[in-house]
Write a protein that binds this DNA or RNA. Sequence first.
DNA 1: TTAGGGTTAG
Length: 615
Amino acid sequence: MGGHFFLPKPSNLSFYNALLQECLESSDLQTGKMLHTNILKSGFLSQIFLTNRLIQLYFKREDSHDARKLFDEMPQRDSFTWNIMIAGYVRSKDIIGARKIFDGYVWRNDISWNTIIRGYVQEGKGSIALNLFNQMIIQGLKPTHFAVSSVLRACAGLSWLKTGKLLHGLIYRFGLEGNVVVCTSLIDMYCKCRELTNACHVFNRMPERNIVSWNAILTGYSQNSLGEDCFRMFIEMLEFGLKPDHITFAVLLSSTAALANLVQGKQLHGFIVKSQFGSDVYVETALIDVYAKCGSVDNARQVFNSMTKQNTVSWSSMVIAYAQNGYGKEAISLFEELLNSGFKPDAITFVGVLMACSHSGLVDEGCRYFDIMQRVHGIEPDKTHYTSLVDLFGRAGYLKEAVELINSMPVKPDAAIWGALLGACRVHRDPELGQLAASKVFELEPQNASAHMLLCHIYSECGNWDDAAKLRAKMKNLGIKKDPGYSWIEVDNVVHRFVADDDSHPWIDEINIALKKLIEQIEHIGYVFYPSSPFNHKIEEGRESYHSEKLAIAFGLISTPTEKTIRIMKNLRVCGDCHNTIKFISQLSGREIIVRDVCRFHHFRSGKCSCGDYW
DNA sequence: TTAGGGTTAG
């Protein structure tokens, strides 16, 4: 309707109403305003429902000022007027404005309560929402699925399991136990509180399930690091005859990224391109992340370039994709582009930039970004930013500065912050400070296996076998188990998994022979076996035992064409000796080797690695 | 003849 200035003279209310409805649907404020004038002239403004529609239209165009003006000038209002005002302010993210209307409305009904409660949940003020819910019940209103789903979401956001369970008990009193919306919210609440058993219980007992409920349970598996189960459930969903939607794909991709499964990622990508969800910004952003986590930064960039609609999250994903893969300069230059693009960087974007600076050893730039984050962009640094900053200083060898930062930061340092310092102590061989950092981690997380292992490595790398052995014994006493290290490699669309001392791979003999020969060859160009711990590399009765990443790389070398990049994923950190070995292998073979371990990416080319972690 | 709802990406 936009652009058509000729309007027939409306002669009755329903005609005005129909026209206004059309304006609302197309967000056509211009025509709406003309109608407004006409309505005024014809004296129809006394018809409350027409003014209500106009108020809605103003809110839709984010003009709460004119909406308010109209509201103030109304000689008479009805319940719709008040509730439209509350909802309008909630939509404009003005919860205070919404609350003022709500408080001023004496005849609040069920919808007024639901709207304001929802508003607080959306603003992240779940406890206020729960308080209002309580008041609503005290006033004798029986909550419907609208209010109950909102407060369940509040519990999910706050991880308030106890309150969530209380609400679960209450839904029987309200007769909502069979309601699909309430059950879906319950599933989501349990999943976000890491109570998957309860979530499944609710899911299995639902009288009816739709795509939203399935998506909720898939999300639960995905966000609780149960990627395999997520896909198992997805297959089950298909067998039930449900059609996946864009949310399903976003969730599946997120699982795929966590599993670093490039084969699966590509399969999903192909499927998505052919589906109608190929230009959904959530799906595309998840796809960028899949490729980034699989070390395929070029594919990530292709997806990013092909996007028709972008937002801060998609830009941040690409910045992080570069940063994680060791392309610090590219990450920073994309970030600078973002600043000129009209999108606003947020807290996570800055984590990506700081990560990039840390990777490239750009300490001054990192400090500058940290500064402008607060001063220019008004973002208060949280623990993740301080962790990045400690990592930035620590990796660059400024251990003293890192400690000073920890002692002066306004947030209470957590295990991740001390862990970053501990990692830096390993790289720069500072056993005293390492011991201090580790003790802080142990105070906060006594069962933290990776901190124990890091300290153990620090001891052994300094030749302090005694303390290393003592720490091992302590771990055994405390029942702290290091996960078995395994590595994956994909060859011809099949994922091969290797574990040290595991002979089950059909090519294991060829792999061992190739590896032995390879090590002999790299010894000629300067490689020296340097055990990062006496437990690292065993030679028993003439049979060698190699770390899983070495097995995976040897398999990659003998089973793929010489020009092909070898990509390995590892569930733990790559040890110093393996890191060194891979450097030499990349030099000897001329192969590009990408290893993604649990902490970061290592990109080996011609005897060098991008990570800068090891000596 | 107008108002309120559950699941998604970094």
